[in-house]
Amino acid sequence: MSRITRQEVERVAALARLELAPDEAERMTSQLDAILDYVALLSEVDTTGIAPTSHAVPLRTPLRDDRPGPPLDPDDAVRNAPEREGSAFLVPKVIEGEES
C-alpha cells in the first residue's frame, strides 16, 4: 500500500509553488513514498504525554529594546532585484487579495 499518491504530491507541489514535469512527479512520488514508509517507524514509539521539543537547548526569550537602527542604504536594498521600478520591486500584476 502506498503512503502518498501522485495527486497528493501534485497538491503539495502547488502549495510549495513547484511545478513538476510528469516523469519528475512520478519519481518524486515513489521516492517520497519510500521515505514516508521509512519514517513510519516513529509510530511504534509511545509518545503519549510527551511534550514536543522545538529547541533542544533551554533558551530564554531575548527581547530587543525599541530603538530603531539605520535602515539599509536604499540602493543596497534593491540592488539584487531582478526587476524594479525606482526603489520598488516589480512583479506581475497582483490581483488584490488573491494569495497567488
Partner: peptide, 14 residues
C-alpha cells in the same frame, strides 16, 4: 501524525 510526533520523539532523544 508527522511533525508533532517527530518533535515528541525529539524530546525522547534529548
Amino acid at each position: 501524525a508527522y511533525y508533532r510526533k517527530a518533535q515528541q520523539v525529539r524530546t525522547l532523544v534529548r
